[in-house]
Amino acid sequence: MSRTNVSADAKQWILNRMLAGAGSDQVVAELMAAGWQRKAATDALAVVVAENPRARVAVAANDTPAEGMPEPGIAQMPLSLDAGDREVQVLIEMKSPRVVVFGNLLGADECAALIEAAKPRMARSETVNRQTGEYQIDVARTSRGMFFQRGESELHLRIENRIAKLLNWPAENGEGLQVLHYQPGAEYEPHYDYFDPADPGTPALTRRGGQRVASLIIYLNTPSNGGATTFPDVGLSVLPQCGNAVFFSYPQPQPSTKTLHAGAPVVAGEKWIATKWLRQRVFA
């Protein structure tokens, strides 16, 4: 379909996609998938960029290759890594999806301290409303949780700096730790951690720090049974062990990263975890 005139609705859609993190090639491809001819799609994109300063900022950011990704230094397959104030074991490494399981990331005392600090502030866990970008209660997530502010205490600073060194990613590019509590039967159904660029609520979520590019799930206790972190696309299950953690990254907000994951139901006992989400830029 050839479109020589760009409607206000089309301009707004293009702007929203760019603010959500879509690069020029992705926007053009999506327009073509909707029936536009390549020249019309390219011209429409150019009109939006020329007319809107926010679009110019977005295209400059989105079309510039990211300067690396969070990634532990395990090219030489070491058995452990220096995380600044402690040695962290490397237990499992997978290329696709990019998954690394760490041992001894936190000490038992640090795990217990995080749990105790979180307990008074726990509430029913929420998920992101994909239409509005706001958080809401969802039946797919049956845990209880809370968010710490980044650097909220000496304990948080110590853990955040340890994670930054381990993953070679600035501490300020991370969200505050989220602590979650799962009782028997509680679970989190399969989901992605990135914000889907196609969702209307994504621009509101990416204004602070850009897209999420990686996740780190830290196990704060060891359940009696169940509670694994599962990756259905590749048949991987990571069993929760106190102080261990699973890291996975997703360079593009797309299912092709194979980072669909879930928190399997707790069968016996309880499960406490702390999740750290890493952003493209400073999260403020």
Rank of each mutant, 00 (worst) to 15 (best):
M1T: 12
S2P: 01
S2V: 12
S2E: 13
V6E: 01
V6I: 14
A8L: 12
W13Q: 11
L15F: 11
R17K: 14
R17I: 02
M18Y: 03
S24D: 08
V27H: 05
E30S: 14
M32A: 03
A33I: 08
W36V: 05
W36Q: 07
K39P: 15
A41M: 13
V48C: 00
A50E: 09
E51R: 00
N52C: 04
P53N: 11
P53R: 08
R54I: 06
R54Q: 15
V57A: 14
V59W: 00
T64I: 06
M69P: 07
P70Y: 07
Q76G: 01
Q76P: 00
S80K: 09
L81M: 08
L81C: 07
A83M: 10
G84Q: 06
E87W: 09
V88K: 06
Q89K: 14
V90R: 04
L91W: 01
L91G: 02
I92M: 13
M94H: 11
S96N: 11
R98Y: 06
V100H: 09
V100I: 13
N104H: 13
D109I: 07
D109Y: 07
E110Y: 10
A113R: 14
L114C: 02
L114F: 08
K119H: 02
R124V: 15
V128A: 11
R130Q: 14
G133S: 04
E134D: 13
Q136E: 15
Q136N: 03
T142M: 08
R144D: 15
M146F: 08
F148L: 05
F148M: 02
Q149H: 07
S153H: 04
L155D: 04
H156M: 10
R162K: 13
R162L: 15
R162D: 09
L166G: 13
L166V: 04
A171Y: 04
A171V: 10
G176A: 08
G176Y: 05
V179A: 14
L180S: 09
L180T: 04
P184Y: 02
P184K: 04
A186I: 04
A186E: 15
E187M: 11
E189G: 01
E189W: 04
Y192F: 14
D193L: 00
F195W: 06
F195V: 01
D196Q: 03
G201N: 09
L205Y: 02
R207A: 09
R207M: 07
R207D: 01
G209S: 07
G209H: 05
G209K: 08
R212F: 00
L216Y: 03
Y219I: 05
L220N: 03
N221F: 05
N221M: 06
N221T: 07
T222G: 08
T222S: 14
T222E: 08
P223Q: 10
S224I: 12
N244F: 05
A245H: 07
F248R: 03
P251Q: 06
P253L: 01
Q254Y: 06
Q254A: 13
S256D: 09
T257H: 02
T257D: 06
A262Q: 12
A262N: 05
A262F: 03
A264N: 10
P265I: 14
E270D: 12
K271L: 13
W272P: 04
K276N: 01
